Simulated scan of single mutants.
Amino acid sequence: MHGPASPGWLLVALCAATGAYCLLRMRSRVEEQRRAAGGEALMGFGMAVMAVPTTVFTPPSWAWPAYTAVFGAAALRALWAARGGGHHLHHLVGASAMVYMAAAMAAAPADPHAHGGPATGVPLLTGVLLLYFTGYVLLSGARLLPVAGTAGTAGTPGTAVAWSDRPELARACRLSMGIGMLAMLLTM
């Protein structure tokens, strides 16, 4: 992504930490959570790699088509899983957004300061994705707010809840990846 180095490294750290926690969530006892965590770990690490500032590392020309293929496969898997609805539709949008960004980066000039012509503004698909992820971030943030009367319902006193089974941490990871996706889309 083309942007300043400091925010780029913060985005790398955020996405890598989210991907690492999603790997931990893959150890959950709940099968659906394990499946979702795998796709979210791929997204987190993929976003971290894409967010590395180009002043530090410029990916080779074959990297963007490889990203497109990997996230295209993830989008097809999410499409297959979305037959049952649920959170898989969001995975489909996220993986498709990664395909879109990788394809846009493959088509971008190698020199970030070289412009092929007059600025045309924000492409329609980028705008739609920005609207979607803005709504997703706002909704995810609202879901993290505590609800009166539900404090302490995550587990009964004396029982420990495994780190991989903490729903509030999973929501926080999804929120951070949504914020990361917004940041990446804004730099396009």
Rank of each mutant, 00 (worst) to 15 (best):
T153L: 15
M188N: 05
V49S: 08
A5Y: 02
P123W: 04
L185D: 02
T153D: 15
R25N: 14
G135C: 09
M101R: 04
L14D: 06
A172E: 07
T126R: 15
Y132Q: 06
S140K: 07
A82T: 04
L139H: 12
S96Q: 05
A162N: 01
G158E: 01
R27S: 14
E40A: 15
A20Y: 01
F57S: 06
W163Q: 04
A160D: 12
P123Q: 07
T126D: 08
G158C: 09
H2V: 07
R143L: 09
W163V: 11
T134S: 15
M47L: 14
G141P: 02
G85A: 12
C22V: 00
R25D: 14
T159F: 09
M101G: 01
A119N: 10
A151W: 10
Y100G: 06
A142C: 03
P167A: 07
M43Y: 04
R77V: 15
L76T: 02
G84P: 01
S6T: 11
A119W: 09
D111Q: 04
L139C: 09
R35W: 12
A172V: 03
L131Q: 09
L144Q: 07
A41K: 02
M181P: 07
Y21G: 05
P109Y: 04
V99A: 05
A51F: 12
Y136G: 02
C15Q: 10
A5L: 13
G117R: 13
R77D: 15
A148N: 04
A114H: 12
A16E: 06
Y21H: 08
R34I: 09
V52T: 03
G38C: 08
P112G: 08
P53C: 10
A97I: 09
E31M: 03
L175M: 04
T134M: 12
P167M: 05
L42I: 08
V147M: 13
H90N: 11
W9M: 11
R29P: 10
G121E: 03
L14Q: 11
H90E: 11
A20F: 06
M26C: 13
L79Q: 02
S140N: 10
R171Q: 15
A36C: 10
A172T: 07
S6F: 13
P59K: 02
P112R: 00
V12S: 12
L169A: 13
C173G: 15
L11C: 02
L129G: 06
E31F: 06
V52G: 00
W9K: 04
A110K: 10
